[in-house]
Design a binder for these strands. Structure first.
Length: 186
DNA sequence: CTTAGGATCGCCT
DNA sequence: GGCGATCCTAAGC
């Protein structure tokens, strides 16, 4: 029994919840999404809060595409754009349970521990080989594979991580009981 | 042109 | 729990 495909025109918290349990591959490497965060316009913690800029342009583009940004000059982080074009909403992929292409991910990360391969947005980017070249691409395009969960998924939520504003919004979502989260839920 | 700071990570104590 | 890495962006002068 397969759930319907994710509607990226939906509000970002809804998409973030729906993405939990989905399988994401980039050039055949990846696994099951176990942690996401939603961001939206009118959200002080969002890159889109101050309006469109060259950097966040993809976030104001069509839904169902990627928004890739670099964090702290080091880490590449992957988002999926939500809502209608021009709105400025997205979902940050924070953690993945590694399933496919383990050796490739180990090589890219320089680690053996499967638990740490994709436990955090920067780690996800490194393990999946995400770079600026991946910014603004359709998630339905050849290099990507996104398959909805094949059954019911138990999702938990809590406050987002690593932000100083709008911390109270419980827009972080996770797969209940997963050992591949970037950190436990409160 | 200059500058401050960030949706993080890894290593230190 | 704290801090340095490391670089790009955006805003200010």
């Amino acid at each position: 029994m397969t759930l319907p495909a994710i509607d990226f025109f939906s509000p970002s918290p809804e998409v973030a919840r729906r993405l939990i349990g989905s399988t994401l591959l980039v050039d055949g490497v990846g696994g099951r999404i176990v942690e996401t965060e939603a961001y939206d316009r009118e959200d002080p913690a969002s890159h889109s809060f101050c309006g469109p800029t060259p950097r966040n342009a993809a976030m104001f583009g069509p839904p169902g595409r990627t928004y890739v940004y670099q964090s702290y000059g080091i880490h590449w982080c992957l988002n999926l754009v939500c809502r209608e074009a021009g709105h400025g909403a997205g979902v940050l992929i924070r953690a993945i349970e590694p399933l496919t292409g383990l050796d490739m991910m180990r090589a890219r990360r320089g680690l053996d521990d499967v638990r740490l391969l994709c436990a955090g947005p920067g780690r996800v980017g490194q393990a999946l080989g995400i770079t600026r070249e991946h910014n603004g691409l359709a998630i339905a395009a050849p290099h990507f594979e996104l398959c909805p969960a094949s059954g019911p998924v138990q999702v938990i939520c809590g406050p987002r991580v690593g932000i100083s504003k709008a911390v109270e919004q419980p827009w972080r979502f996770g797969l209940a009981g997963s050992r591949f989260l970037s950190r436990p839920f409160g």
